[in-house]
Design a protein around this nucleic acid. Structure first.
Lengths: 141, 141
DNA sequence: ACATACCTGACTAAAATGGTCAAGTTTAGA
DNA sequence: TCTAAACTTGACCATTTTAGTCAGGTATGT
């Protein structure tokens, strides 16, 4: 399982977007400056967010990104999946005749990681962008 | 955050140990063969488990490892911490005057990762080796 | 036309991962 | 007492992932 900066950046950027896209599209440049994330890296991230229909883009001067849906309809789960931060805890070979570790049976921890995966996914499915906005409504930055 | 093979191996090895240490210490060699984990790697893992008083060792012929406590007293949390698979989701610089990203404020997702961390830790604190033994009591391997 | 901003893909330094290898020390049992 | 089994320690390493950078584009509002 992995939960690294990419996922964090994606969430940060989208919270930023949710705050500022009410009138005009928001440029990555602005997000980059406000959130302290490299512009080039943001472009990679937004490319994936766009492919997953989480944001929409407008090109040209005054262009930028806006959210595709309302903040309460965008779950953290959607965001993290979009940037390939899928919650994956076990690397048991699926569909092979043998189970984990090349054995006939599943490794003794197999069910455990499955449970954990569900546990974490549930957490992210419940949280929406809206929830984060609310939590940080008093913040300046 | 990271949850990789090392943690999985540690749990697998301890479940194995819990099953077989009733009479004699169990050698890493045996665990290695039964669980399909490299012996050398197991040695690294058990070195840490020992430092954290999760297992005790006996040297020499017929030596090996036994659990320091009863299976129901060993929480998964203890195991994963011992092998450095601490649940860590954010790399915000602690104790610096500035918050995440070198800003004066915490990044908007700071609380989120904190919550997740608690969420996951709670999961592991509730699970003991005993629980895993029970789940797999019918297994052959 | 030109500046702004999106778009794409190749590239890379540094860190983490999942080990291996070598050289011990300790102790049970023959 | 000798020796093999088993623990102990630390260095080393190939591969993969991460977190970007860089170098080009293309589209479009003014």
């Amino acid at each position: 399982m992995k939960l690294t900066s990419k996922g964090r950046y994606a969430v940060m950027a989208l919270v930023d977007l949710a705050r500022f896209d009410t009138i005009n599209p928001v440029s990555l440049r602005d997000i980059s400056l406000r959130q302290g994330i490299s512009l080039d890296y943001l472009e990679q991230i937004f490319s994936k967010l766009k492919k997953n229909q989480i944001v929409k883009s407008t090109r040209g001067t005054q262009g930028g990104y806006i959210l595709s849906k309302k903040p309460n309809e965008i779950k953290l789960n959607n965001i993290l999946n979009a940037v390939d931060e899928k919650v994956k805890t076990v690397q048991c070979k699926k569909e092979s005749k043998k189970g984990c570790n090349g054995r006939a049976t599943k490794c003794v921890t197999h069910n455990l990681w499955d449970e954990l995966e569900t546990h974490i996914n549930t957490f992210f499915e419940k949280k929406s962008l809206q929830d984060l906005l609310k939590d940080n409504s008093e913040r300046v930055n």
